[in-house]
Each structure stands twice: as C-alpha cells, then as structure tokens.
Amino acid sequence: MMAENTQTQMRKGILEYCVLLIISKGEIYASDIIAELKSAKLLVVEGTLYPLLTRLKNNGLLSYNWVESTSGPPRKYYVLTTEGTGILNQLDYTWNELSEAIQTAKNVADKQSTNPINLKK
C-alpha cells in the first residue's frame, strides 16, 4: 500500500513533464499522446489525460488547432506555446537535477553496501 501510494505520486509528478515532452516534439493528437504514454507505461487509463491537457492549455502552456480528419470529427492537435517551452526547459533542468540526485543516492547506497566506512566521510 505504501509502495503503491509513492508510485502513484511519482507517476503523477512526472506525467505532466512527459506530456510536455511528447508535445514538444511537434503537433500531436491526443490519442497519439496516449499511445506514447502507454508504451512508456506511464498511463493506466485515458480519461486522466483530458483533464490534464485542458489544465495545461488553460495555464497557457499548450494550445491546439482543429484539424479535419478523414474518418470522423475534426481532431484537436496540441502544440507547445513559448511559455510551455520555457516551462519545459525549467522542468528539464529540474529533472536532470533529480535524476542526478537519484543516481547519487543510488551510488552512495551501492558503495555503502560494499563499504560502509565511506559513509562517515
């Protein structure tokens, strides 16, 4: 239960970042975002994405264009705004920091397990 909770929190934290990352690659349709998120095993159900996209759009990070579809209704294609790009850069920076922090922590833990005396340094 404890692990599950933490996992959810972690996923939730990076979901937004990942969505921005995916969109930053170019104009993209919501179900393609979903497909990518699914292949990255970040998204369990699709329904969660729509509120997130709407929120990001309302915060000015995203905008969308209606594009006519050959089969069915017109689709929303999302793009990053300049503000979104800025935020994404900040998030990139933070992510690098975080991953370094985790890497360090892991390395420390590894070394600790092999050589506990190192910790005192």
């Binding site: 369990v44 159900v45 699709e46 329904g47 969660t48 509120p51």
Partner: peptide, 14 residues
C-alpha cells in the same frame, strides 16, 4: 470504458 478508465481511476490520479 475500461480503456478510458472509471471515475475511481480519475480520482486516484488527480
């Protein structure tokens, strides 16, 4: 609906 997720799923992710 299972692909889209139930309201419970939304709740836990929000």
């Amino acid at each position: 609906t299972s692909q889209m997720g139930s309201v419970k799923d939304f709740q836990s992710e929000e």
